[in-house]
C-alpha cells in the first residue's frame, strides 16, 4: 500500500498492462482462471437478481422478448436478402466481364501476352469539342498514352493523358476524327468487304460519314459493320468495330456519282460505366 502511495503511476501502468494481458488471454485459459471468482460472485448476487427478474417479467409481458426475437429474425432476413442481391449483382457483373474478355480475346490483333485491364469511367465529357472520358486507372496500373480503350468488340478511343491513378481517353467520336475503316458484311447482311479510305465524325448527325463512289454503292448494305484498319492507331486496336451503316443517300452535290454513307457508332459514349484498356504486352 505504501508503494502504491509513493509510486501510483508505476502501479497504475502495471495494472493496465496486467489487465491488457488478461484481455488477450485465450478463452480456454480465461475460462479456467476466471470461473473461480465468477461462480461465487454470481452465487452472491443471483438470489436477489432472480427475484428482480421475476418481478420484471411480471411487469413486462414476456411476449416483448418474442417480439424482440421476431424483429431480430426479420432484420437478419432482410440483411440476407440484401446481401443476396449484392452477390447476384456481383455475379452478373463477373459473367459480363468474362463474356467481354472472351469476346476481346478472339481478336487476332491481340497477342498472347497482351494485357486487358478493366477500368471504371469516373467522368464523361462526350458533348464538348474535346470528347473525352476519365478512367480510374493510370500509370500505376500499367496504363500508358496511346493504348486502345475498347468495350466488348467496339473501339471507344485511346489514352491521351496518363496520371498516377487516372487517365484521360480521347473518344473516337471527337469531332473531325478521321479513321480508316473496312466495311464488312454484318451477321444479318451479305456482300464482300469494301475498303473505305476515311470516315469522318460529323457532330451534326452524331455519326461517322463517308462519301463513296456510286459504283461501290451496290456492294455496301445497311447493316454493314465498320472495322478499324488504320495504321495511325495501335496494332491492338485494329479490327475493332467502329459502327454500322445506318443509311446511304445520294450525295447532294453529285447525286449520280457519289453516295453518302452514314455509320452510327455502336456505343453510346454518354452511358459508359466500365471500359477495357488494352495494355501493351511485355514483349513489346
Amino acid at each position: 500500500m505504501n508503494y502504491w502511495r509513493t509510486n501510483p503511476k508505476r502501479v497504475l501502468v502495471a495494472i493496465v498492462a496486467l489487465l491488457f494481458l488478461c484481455s488477450m488471454m485465450p478463452s480456454s485459459a480465461a475460462d479456467w482462471i476466471w470461473s473461480m471468482p465468477h461462480d461465487p460472485f454470481m452465487a452472491v448476487i443471483s438470489p436477489l437478481t432472480k427475484q428482480l427478474h421475476r418481478l420484471s417479467i411480471s411487469i413486462r409481458p414476456p411476449h416483448d422478448k418474442g417480439f424482440s426475437i421476431d424483429s431480430d429474425l426479420i432484420k437478419e432476413r432482410d440483411e440476407l436478402y440484401s446481401h443476396n442481391l449484392i452477390l447476384q449483382q456481383q455475379l452478373e457483373r463477373a459473367n459480363d466481364r468474362i463474356s467481354q474478355l472472351s469476346a476481346v480475346r478472339k481478336k487476332p490483333a491481340l497477342g498472347q501476352y497482351t494485357g486487358l485491364l478493366f477500368a471504371s469511367v469516373v467522368y464523361t465529357n462526350a458533348n464538348l469539342p474535346h470528347s473525352t472520358l476519365t478512367i480510374d486507372k493510370g500509370s500505376f496500373h500499367g496504363v500508358a498514352a496511346g493504348q486502345a480503350v475498347v468495350l466488348r468488340e467496339s473501339l471507344i478511343g485511346r489514352v491521351s493523358h496518363v496520371g498516377h491513378n487516372a487517365a484521360t481517353v480521347t473518344l473516337i467520336t471527337q469531332p473531325k476524327t478521321h479513321l480508316d475503316v473496312h466495311l464488312v458484311p454484318g451477321e444479318s447482311t451479305t456482300g464482300k468487304p469494301v475498303t473505305v479510305t476515311q470516315v469522318l465524325f460529323d457532330e451534326d448527325v452524331n455519326a461517322f460519314v463517308t462519301i463513296v463512289d456510286a459504283s461501290e454503292h451496290n456492294s455496301i448494305q445497311i447493316g454493314h459493320t465498320a472495322i478499324l484498319v488504320d495504321v495511325r492507331w495501335p496494332r491492338q486496336a485494329q479490327k475493332f468495330m467502329i459502327g454500322y451503316v445506318v443509311s446511304m443517300e445520294p450525295q447532294p452535290d453529285h447525286p449520280l456519282l457519289q453516295t453518302r454513307v452514314v455509320i452510327k457508332p455502336v456505343v453510346d459514349m454518354n452511358r459508359l460505366a466500365e471500359v477495357l484498356v488494352v495494355i501493351n504486352s511485355i514483349l513489346e
Binding site: 489487465l19 494481458l21 484481455s23 488477450m24 480465461a30 475460462d31 470461473s35 465468477h38
Partner: peptide, 10 residues
C-alpha cells in the same frame, strides 16, 4: 460463455 477480465476494467 467465458468471463474475460480486462476490457471493461480498462
Amino acid at each position: 460463455s467465458v468471463p474475460l477480465i480486462g476490457p471493461s476494467s480498462l
